[in-house]
Amino acid sequence: MLLEGAAETVRLTALMLALGAAVGLPFGVLHVYGPRILRVAVLDPIVVFFRGIPSLVLMMIIYFGASEIGLDLSGFIASILAIGVRSGIYQSQIVRGAIQSVGSGQMLAARAIGMSKWRAIRFIVIPQALRLALPPWSNEYAGVLKESSLAYALGVTELMRQGRYIVARTFGNSLLVYTVCAAIYFVLVFLGIRLLRKVEQRFSVPGFDAAPQGRAFFGRDLESSR
């Protein structure tokens, strides 16, 4: 039962992150290269808005708000929308930071060989920015995975709710059951970050933020302060 819940948690997380990436990449690019007015009038307020509201509240607003206007969203969909968009806004800031750390000479050289601005972004800036974005993005992965437990509140039978069912049925093994849930979350985060580290190494370019071998989980802070 717990494993079914874990599978649902993985599905939730994957869809939230995918929606987040679909929102975050274009938002991040527009934040840097879009017109100033768009940034000031639209993007910045959206970022402030989503930073200031707890995901659980956002989920409630979407779930009950939708039914109020006659739209029947499942808890599953409402959770993905709320946390996915929230993550997208955060991811847009990761992308923005990564783009801004790509040297300005790269864009200049791309324009000098006759690339249009958007081609230069597509073929020169983004491939470099995504490599830079991967390490902070693995934090976002861990965050969203754990945040997906909030879907519990909308009745989604993910890991936490399955645990709750077991506790209810067995009359109070709460400590044991929730500890097992915690262990499963931990393992999922651990494995996911290991995997992302592999991806990082796969795409690493000599001299360009090469990912050191090993120490995938605990070594992050130490390494980034090198």
């Binding site: 040297g103 790269q106 050289a109 491939p127």
Partner: peptide
Amino acid sequence: MVFQDFNLFTH
């Protein structure tokens, strides 16, 4: 155009 600091595409 050839730049002072090369500006080769690093990736």
